[in-house]
Design a protein around this nucleic acid. Sequence first.
DNA 1: TCAAGGTGCTAATGCGAATTACTACAGGAG
DNA 2: CTCCTGTAGTAATTCGCATTAGCACCTTGA
Lengths: 327, 327
Amino acid sequence: MAGVSQTTVSLVLNKRGDADVRIAPETRERVLQVIRETGYVADPVARRLAYGRNRILGVFTYEAVFPAESADFYHPFLVGIEECAQEIGCDLLLFTSARAASGARRRIFNEESRVRLADGCVLLGRTVDREDLARLLAEGIPFVSVGRRDDAGGPVPYVGADYPPAVRALVERAVALGHRRLAYVGAGTGGESMADRLRGFHEGVAATGADGRHLTPDVPLGDLVAAGVTAVFVEEYADCVAIAAAAGERGVEVPRDLSILTLGAFTRPVRIDTDFTGFRIPRREMGRRAVQLLAGVLETGGTPQELLPCELVDGTTLAPAPDRTAI
Amino acid sequence: MAGVSQTTVSLVLNKRGDADVRIAPETRERVLQVIRETGYVADPVARRLAYGRNRILGVFTYEAVFPAESADFYHPFLVGIEECAQEIGCDLLLFTSARAASGARRRIFNEESRVRLADGCVLLGRTVDREDLARLLAEGIPFVSVGRRDDAGGPVPYVGADYPPAVRALVERAVALGHRRLAYVGAGTGGESMADRLRGFHEGVAATGADGRHLTPDVPLGDLVAAGVTAVFVEEYADCVAIAAAAGERGVEVPRDLSILTLGAFTRPVRIDTDFTGFRIPRREMGRRAVQLLAGVLETGGTPQELLPCELVDGTTLAPAPDRTAI
DNA sequence: TCAAGGTGCTAATGCGAATTACTACAGGAG
DNA sequence: CTCCTGTAGTAATTCGCATTAGCACCTTGA
């Protein structure tokens, strides 16, 4: 329509004013005019095939992105991801189809994975399949994990929450308030984040010289009390609630008789009613940062690894240790 | 690696057992073996370019997808959309980049729109730009709007909430409880959904012979009371809350002195504390249905238009009309 | 023995852009 | 008048796959 070749149109569209390729202003204007009239938009697919970039970031989650329960644990991450993606002018591709059929484990690389359609991707999930990570690494697909990950055939780029210092700080607080017998209640495994929490607990215990034990979530409240534990550090939020409820039933007053500190893992949905003492995982910031780091990886490569600090939350479930003699 | 041509691999991958093209089982197995070993995955971009389909559905929202406020109005739509997309094995492309720079109106067709990367898309938003709709229609891009839309140079495919009967039913309920002076509080414009609500109100008033007036949201509560209005039908949820609050201040008891019925529009975020009488917009179902309809459009074309019924919610803000003589 | 028909696979082409290599033309220097 | 140097633009190729047309080989029937 403008009487020029496809090449010229391409050059005009991509604003190429290079030294080695130039377009007469008059010609350029003619092309732009036609584009304006027809509303022509370059096919993003072909563009990507030829050029290699899309401005599309993939988001892979091992759970549903939009959970039925609002105010869900993952939501803040996504808020941050979206905010940042918008700022840098990228679209987001949610791999919703990856949710495998019942039974089978969901995997990034399924039969017709669309991962490579995106320029890079953000991984979200409590745990991420090691094989998936290794393959991502091996194939050189740019990605950033939200949440720290152990090496998987190489260092994994991530932005995580810095649990150890946070948990350790909580332990120190409790000890400062007179608590001597502490318990970590939770698996302490099942993902790096759990391991990090437990590690922070042990560090804190070691640093303060307190007595710290590691118990599984199914430990009866009676055992805790009988063992003289006055402060529990609970990995999973739902267990916090359960313990608080059990305490209520048994006449153990929180926090007078027992301090409960949450370590903020959300594996199971639960209604939030108590204002537990613990720390805030900077979820939104992690989401934002993940996208920023991914943008950096796309730009210049590298394997960024960052841990964001968790802010302590005062809450109402930590009090000075009860007078032992009074019990 | 398998000693066959690219064509053969393509045929094996796409499971073509057509009459006109056949592959020896032995060859097929050899190819599959190599694929298994190398973990080869066809480039989704090239695939789309050649074949024309992606199994990617675009989601265009005129507001942020993941709002900072949880339990947001749009969230249920997205839950439904994701659920259904997952079921039919599609990924979701969120056009987060479309959020234009401050000031400018966000548009679907911006300079480098990625709409055409998806097979089709779902439109979400209180109002949708008419020009965008017209262009979508003109270019033959498959899409389905969530929310009824007036024609835009042709009928628009949509799945909406059926407001008129719902509002009308509320009016009839109020009249059945003795209310005679009713007021619709809200703009009644600014999108098809608003117009539909107002229309339903007028229908209800006409059918019952009650006295119905249309007032703007800034009407002072005093005027309502002075005019003898005993039941207000409030378009915007935030206004419901505001009116209830104003009533509380002025000693007008809800619902004894004044019944408040919500028509469920959420333009402005607001804390929900009262259990207003009104109806439930089937948001999640609308999201699901939109994706189903879109799948249908992709399959067989057409211009589906559906309205889903709104279920009445009893709530606590509708009571029999006060005895007029007693006021 | 040869044509007809079936079988199994490949060469060539297209999708729509980006990119590279190259050409036609004009003006100035030698 | 020829050679050189820019300048402005184009033809050809590439990206990785799907698809169509067609080729070579093997049966079968007459």
